[in-house]
């Protein structure tokens, strides 16, 4: 379970100081599918970075099973990320000079996962294992980054606008792969998006508005990636 407690985060100094996260508290259950919904600039990415251990809040705690990760040293925090979390970003950030294989291996090595080829097959890229990112379409690149994140067998998968750069069809496909893989591996999903339709796929929806949580609700039934509107 992830518990965020009284998270405050600001950027800038003096006059231009700007509070991005205004005292956010929130619980995320294990194996849940959480979507954080909000307009651009509402602080979603910042919140995601804070609860995933990429950034430190100005004040507040982030507890994973009761253990506060904001109190960890840089070194411990790195090792926490190595063991517990996976990331997928809007820009895929694949390593351009390495083949699909090697990109996925970047994640796999961290968990000593020798079986990373299975996961490449699972996102439907078995045939393109030896291609380089520049030879793949956007959707395929994002699927590589899904495979890379899951190859390290994270407890929690954080996604920041994973379909933001994709068109409808490839976007649906990527989301579908993520959902299917969650059923298989059982990780927790925390996904940031500004797309209302994608929220229908989630179990828990958290709405954010200018640095605060404005609403939390759960969906009775979760739709699949092909049932939602776009």
């Amino acid at each position: 379970m992830i518990e965020a407690r009284d998270i405050i985060k600001s950027y800038g100094n003096g006059e231009s100081r700007f509070q991005v996260l205004k005292d956010i508290s929130l619980d995320i259950e294990d194996h849940d599918f959480v979507v954080i919904l909000g307009a651009s600039g509402s602080g979603k990415s910042t919140f995601l970075n804070v609860i995933s251990g990429l950034e430190r809040p100005d004040s507040g705690k982030v507890l994973y099973d009761g253990k506060d990760i904001t109190a960890l040293s840089d070194h411990e925090l790195t090792s926490f990320r190595k063991k517990s979390v996976g990331f997928i970003f809007q820009q895929y950030y694949l390593l351009p000079n390495m083949s699909v294989d090697k990109n996925v291996k970047m994640g796999a090595d961290l968990a000593d996962n020798k079986d990373y080829k299975t996961i490449i097959g699972a996102v439907g890229l078995g045939e393109k294992r030896h291609k380089y990112p520049s030879e793949l379409s956007g959707g395929e690149q994002q699927r590589v980054s899904v495979a890379r994140a899951l190859a390290k067998r994270p407890r929690v998968l954080f996604l920041d606008e994973p379909t933001g750069a994709l068109d409808e069809q490839t976007g649906r496909q990527v989301l579908d792969y993520i959902c299917k893989l969650q059923k298989e591996y059982g990780f927790t999903i925390v996904m940031v998006t500004h797309n209302l339709n994608i929220a229908e796929m989630a179990h828990t929806v958290i709405k954010m508005n200018s640095g605060k949580i404005s609403e939390i609700y759960t969906n009775e039934t979760q739709k699949t990636a092909y049932e939602i509107g776009w």
Binding site: L95, M98, D109, H130, Y132
Partner: peptide, 26 residues
């Protein structure tokens, strides 16, 4: 974005030999 293409690295070379760790590969 990037011009690297697979043709530069023949497949059989990748398959051969023991596998390197990611850090070593990089």
């Amino acid at each position: 974005d990037n011009l690297q293409t697979a043709s530069k690295t023949p497949k059989h070379r990748i398959e051969k030999g023991r596998e390197l760790s990611f850090v070593e590969d990089l």
